[in-house]
Amino acid sequence: MNFLNILSTSASGLNAQRIRMNLISSNMANVNTTKTKEGGPYRRKDAVFEAINKKGFGETLEMYLTDVSVREIVEDRRPYIIKYDPGHPDANKDGYVAMPNINIIEEMVNMISASRSYEANVSAIKATKDMVSAALKIGK
């Protein structure tokens, strides 16, 4: 059993889910941000995952085993939420403000999903550790 390889696959899963979690936190924190470096309100960000093949070719098992990585971080192109708030410094002449295109409920749901996936990978690492220590106990 090439357990270092197995652990690295689980670690790639943990890493990807953590990046997703960071982006969700960033979205939730910026739910009312109307000024950004790029100008305009904050846009919702999301991570795009990609399965990366380990080396190996042909009909071998290695061809199917994949790590996961974050290919890119994309900005959500959905329209901004328009809110009526004439006192806001960023309000237009009719008194409307463009707020970030973030739905806080959607973010909460994504957060639960990311945290469950993270936990699944942690359990997987635990199982790997169990198996390795069982293998080391052979002959004792």
């Binding site: 059993m1 090439n2 197995i6 696959t9 899963g13 994949t66 996961v68 997987a124 790997t128």
Partner: peptide, 10 residues
């Protein structure tokens, strides 16, 4: 085990 790990990670 390797197969299951790959599925869980993805």
């Amino acid at each position: 085990h390797e197969v299951i790990i790959s599925n869980i990670a993805n």
